[in-house]
Every structure is written in structure tokens, then in C-alpha cells.
């Protein structure tokens, strides 16, 4: 396949590779893995010298010495590991010559249209509640069982409100801000009802599903690997999320005076 190909082959290959890259960045994969997967797919398909440039907000790719070149923008950056796993096994199968390029293209478009299993919302909410409650007990050294249910409830409410506000608004970080304000209001109400609880502990646990600690760690790993641009972009994103969360909590606590 390494001889001169017709243009529809290159267009197909470009579309497939760019969609793969977009999906992997949306799923929260590392930059070097995205680059590796795209180059590997192109090389397996028979293009000897594919060139890729990747930043977290977009991808450029050129084939056939620059005769075919396209770019794609990436707007969403979440963590969705099922997506990364699907794409990874697809490229693994393609590299082992188990499937052909048209099949890869078809599968990739299926995944891009949302044809992969997702946990239903209520299971995700239970996960967020469990995460909030258990991490609160683990972080607060003296085993604070009193705030355990409160942290679970507030964490679940925060997760649900962030989930719905992300669909509702296009302004980024507004969802985190609003979720933090709702969570703080509920926590203040709970502490008014049961004065023995400590609001700082409740909020510490309940914010755990939303805080950007993971994004910060990934950003630093990218920086250490030499991906300076994507590291800086991710650090910026994590800082803005932290400011949104802390600002939301601070505003409500100032007004309600708890």
C-alpha cells in the first residue's frame, strides 16, 4: 500500500486520525499517547511519514508531504476512560492487522456518536456520594463519623448540580461556581439544623468530586515529559476551576455568615 494512493484514501485516513485524536483528548488521555496512536494508525495504513502537532485545544495533521493537511478543534476536555480504552483497543487491533481501515473508520464514527457504555447518572451520583464521605473521613485524622452522612448528601447534590449546569450553560467554570454555591448553602442549612457538625469538614469532603487535583497532577506530568504547551494549558484550567470552587464557597459563606 506504500505506493501512490488516490485522494479519497488520504481523506479517509485524515478524517479517521483526526477524529481519533479528538476523542482521545476529550477522554482525558495524555498528549504523547494521542500523538503515538495517531502516528501508528497512519503508519499502519501505509503512509510512511505522517506529521502531527497536538495541543489540548486542537490538532493539526499532514500526510503525503503536506499535500493533504487538516486541523480540528477540541472544545471539551473531560475524563472519560471508557473512550480512551475503546480507541486504544481499536488501534491495537488495527496495528495487528485484525481489521481494515474502513472498519476502523466506521467504529470510530460509532464511538464519536456516543455508541459506548456509560454508567447511568444515579450510579455516578452514588459514586460521588461515597467518594465524598469516605475521603472526608480519611482526610480528617480523628475519624469524624458525625459529618459522614452530611458529606455524602452535600457531595451528591454538588455533583448533580454541576452535571446539569454544564449542559445548561456554555460559559466554562460557571457550572463549578454555581455548584459550589449550592453546596455551601445546603451545608450551612445542615449545620443550622445540627449545630454539632463542622462545616469545614463537610465541605472538604463534598468538594472532592469537583476539585482539580487530578488535572493539576496530570499537568505536571505533561510538563515533566516536555509537553510544555499542554502542561501550561492544563495548569491554567485547573487554577480557574479552583478559583471558581473557592470563590463560590467564599461568597456564600460571607453572605450567610457561618
Amino acid at each position: 500500500m506504500s505506493s501512490k494512493q488516490d485522494s479519497s484514501f488520504y481523506h479517509d485516513l485524515l478524517d479517521t486520525c483526526l477524529t481519533v485524536g479528538e476523542l482521545m483528548i476529550e477522554g482525558g488521555s495524555e498528549m504523547y499517547r494521542v500523538e503515538d496512536t495517531m502516528v501508528r494508525i497512519a503508519k499502519t495504513a501505509g503512509e510512511p511519514d505522517p506529521r502531527v502537532f497536538i495541543v489540548p485545544t486542537g490538532i493539526f495533521m499532514s500526510l503525503d508531504r503536506g499535500n493533504y493537511c487538516q486541523s480540528i478543534l477540541v472544545h471539551e476536555r473531560n475524563i472519560n476512560l471508557e473512550l480512551v480504552d475503546r480507541i486504544n483497543s481499536l488501534s491495537r487491533d488495527f496495528a495487528a492487522n485484525k481489521i481494515t481501515l474502513p472498519q476502523v473508520k466506521e467504529q470510530v464514527y460509532k464511538i464519536a456518536n456516543g455508541d459506548f457504555p456509560v454508567f447511568p447518572l444515579w450510579i455516578q451520583v452514588i459514586g460521588a456520594a461515597v467518594l465524598s464521605a469516605t475521603l472526608m473521613v480519611m482526610f480528617i485524622e480523628n475519624y469524624d463519623w458525625l459529618d459522614f452522612p452530611a458529606a455524602a448528601v452535600v457531595g451528591a447534590i454538588g455533583f448533580v448540580s454541576a452535571y446539569y449546569f454544564k449542559r445548561f450553560t456554555k460559559v466554562k467554570y460557571l457550572a463549578e461556581l454555581v455548584a459550589a454555591m449550592i453546596m455551601t448553602t445546603v451545608a450551612v442549612g445542615i449545620v443550622h439544623l445540627f449545630p454539632a457538625m463542622i462545616i469545614d469538614n463537610i465541605l472538604t469532603g463534598a468538594l472532592m468530586p469537583l476539585v482539580p487535583g487530578l488535572a493539576l497532577t496530570n499537568a505536571l506530568r505533561d510538563l515533566f515529559k516536555g509537553d510544555l504547551l499542554s502542561g501550561m494549558v492544563k495548569i491554567c484550567e485547573a487554577l480557574l476551576t479552583a478559583f471558581a470552587l473557592g470563590g463560590g464557597v467564599g461568597i456564600i459563606l460571607k453572605f450567610l455568615g457561618a
Partner: peptide
């Protein structure tokens, strides 16, 4: 890695600022 990452101090830093 989630139990280890410093999400809580990051939030606390912003809250102390506010």
C-alpha cells in the same frame, strides 16, 4: 491517585484568599 491529590489544599488556598 485520587486520595493523594491536593484538591483540598488548592480549594483552601482560594478560600483563604477570599
Amino acid at each position: 491517585i485520587v486520595p493523594l491529590v491536593p484538591g483540598v489544599p488548592a480549594y483552601q488556598a482560594v478560600r483563604e484568599l477570599t
